[in-house]
Design a protein around this nucleic acid. Sequence first.
DNA 1: TCGACATATATCGCGCGATAAATAATCGGA
DNA 2: TCCGATTATTTATCGCGCGATATATGTCGA
Lengths: 147, 147
Amino acid sequence: MQDPMKLDDLICFAVYTASHALNRVYKPLLDTLGLTYPQYLAMVALWEQDGQTVGGLGEKLFLESSTLTPLLKRLESAGYIRRERSSEDERVVVIRLSEEGSRLKEKAIGIPGCIVEASGRDAANLTRLQAEIVALREALNKSGTHG
Amino acid sequence: MQDPMKLDDLICFAVYTASHALNRVYKPLLDTLGLTYPQYLAMVALWEQDGQTVGGLGEKLFLESSTLTPLLKRLESAGYIRRERSSEDERVVVIRLSEEGSRLKEKAIGIPGCIVEASGRDAANLTRLQAEIVALREALNKSGTHG
DNA sequence: TCGACATATATCGCGCGATAAATAATCGGA
DNA sequence: TCCGATTATTTATCGCGCGATATATGTCGA
């Protein structure tokens, strides 16, 4: 039997380094928008559906509110979003895109295409891989909650 | 044509969240070893081949010396490694496992199996996915160096 | 042998991300 | 009305990751 502890055979190492590689491709693109990678993902979530709550965003992005709150504050001080307490339920904070935040989507619209190109694969191939990675994520998340 | 800006369709989002999911599975396991995730990967690289240089490790792990040096210093102060300047070339720093660092492998040996189990897949399936993710990483890295 | 350039690592500064734990405010039901 | 649950914020801590720069050493050629 082979050594189970080979770096290049670890799925975690593959994902870890792929994540960095993606980050490096994204960085120059996101720099022009003044966004970090997680901030970009939060903006994508908001472009998709404006007016989400902090908790709702956290569920989508798999982030805790203690991570999200400072991140959202940075987006607010950058002028891309507003944070408003809901009048119906004062515990809840609703995130709304500002004009500038909405407009930013136009500048970002080409980014996913750049990534597809950099991946050197066609869209269908990438979609299939993406679905497999999501399945892995789901299995891992499930294993955590079960014990 | 569909909106290219859907969160759940972005490969980057899949990788980003899968990386987090992995991290959460690893965390309790690594806590018992006193290692962080990147530190664990550095140790795996060293268990595989002791006596590597800082630069060599950086190439394997895709990390700059400005990231690696502090990380290795933390491993050194934890007592897992030693950092020794090469006598042949005084510019080079060679990393060697301490006794304790070598022994740590025994405590870590079960971890990859835990991850496989948490993934809910058989080893062959996981190996195939892992290879695909590596291929993605390689393509992305290549795209960066080419321009 | 000297000087210019290359290489290997370290240092510094920066900001962010992530977590845990404590706090506060609010909601809703018994 | 009170108590547990929910939602978000705050605080403190830590490490990662990068770019730019510094330092020391090595190398090669004139």
